[in-house]
């Protein structure tokens, strides 16, 4: 096994499989174990989610300023202007403490945990003899679940190992719909209005595409996985609500009709602010440039003397 495989097994999979099975030994209900485990993991990931929301909110807030910079250099295609535009944008990021890919960081950290979670569910209730033999690789020797294997995967009249499309009709219809609906709601809560028409279009597309994709794929997932995604979404929505409303990270919602007017006003005032900021920044840069130039001149003079 390569080093990545060993780390994946030892750091992600084993703790997850053992925690999941330990919860099962307490409640003897695998569906409930999945739900409880998902909630625990999502709660542990709150700091990452807060960071992600902060970054996304911050990025949304500085969008008008970025747009203003882009507008400023819209007709200037020369290399010098492009460089200036980039440096001004970077200066803005620095000034506001934002990172354009900052929201990806927490997400990238969360992704292995999501993958580990769903794989832990698979490993714990294996539908095949091979899967049961492989479970021996993941369970700690002291885990009391060994005496309770195989885990009872019945939950609310469905078997969590069966694909959703093979579960009773009620679950076959409801699970994909609920997964889609909660994905939509979660997506809606994490989308910040930036006032950029193109971006809003992308947001709109994402808002609908992701829930449809999740709902569609859910049909062929094992029911246990669908339960995991559903409760991960529900917990995510709860946490998001808490972050946005209780921790004051939310953006005040505007009326749709007045939204564009306010954004336009904001843009105008921000553009004026930006002009002042940039002239100041430019001044600093040119002063810094002068310093560098004078340092260079001094060096040249020194060389000549030598």
């Amino acid at each position: 096994m390569d080093i990545f495989g060993i780390l994946w097994t030892e750091i992600i999979m084993k703790p997850m499989v053992n925690t999941l099975t330990l919860i099962y030994t307490l409640f003897h209900n695998f569906g409930f174990s999945i739900i409880l485990f998902t909630i625990i993991v999502r709660i542990l990931m709150i700091p990452l989610q807060v960071r992600q929301v902060r970054q996304m909110k911050g990025m949304a807030e500085i969008q008008p300023k970025i747009k203003a910079i882009q507008e400023k250099y819209k007709d200037k295609k020369d290399r010098d202007s492009r460089q200036k535009m980039t440096s001004e944008t970077m200066a803005l990021y620095k000034q506001t403490g934002m990172n354009p890919i900052g929201c990806l960081g927490p997400m990238i950290i969360q992704l292995p945990i999501w993958i580990g979670l769903y794989r832990a569910i698979f490993k714990t209730v294996p539908p095949t003899p091979e899967g049961l033999a492989n479970l021996s690789t993941y369970l700690y020797k002291w885990n009391p679940v060994i005496n309770q294997l195989p885990i009872n995967s019945e939950f609310l009249t469905m078997n969590l190992v069966d694909p959703v499309q093979s579960t009773p009709r009620l679950f076959m219809i409801m699970l994909p719909l609920l997964v889609g609906a909660t994905t939509w709601l979660q997506q809606k809560m994490t989308t910040f209005n930036s006032g950029d028409a193109r971006q809003q279009q992308t947001n709109k597309m994402m808002l609908w595409m992701l829930p449809i994709m999740f709902g569609f794929f859910t049909l062929s997932f094992p029911a246990g996985l669908a339960v995991y995604i559903l409760f991960s979404n529900i917990t995510g929505i709860g946490i998001q609500y808490f972050i946005l409303n209780k921790m004051g990270l939310g953006i005040k919602k505007d009326n749709n009709e007045t939204n564009s007017v306010i954004i336009q006003k904001e843009k105008n005032s921000q553009e004026d602010d930006l002009k002042d900021d940039y002239s100041e920044l430019h001044g600093q840069n040119s002063r810094r440039g002068n310093k560098v130039r004078s340092r260079k001149t001094r060096t040249k003079k020194g060389r000549r003397r030598n």
Partner: peptide, 29 residues
Amino acid sequence: RMRIKKIIFFMMLIFLMSIQISCMNEMQH
């Protein structure tokens, strides 16, 4: 930002597809 959104979208798509593939592998006798 649009590019980042697209990256997130494709990451999600890859995530879903990887689940789909591992579902098929893990569930097959």
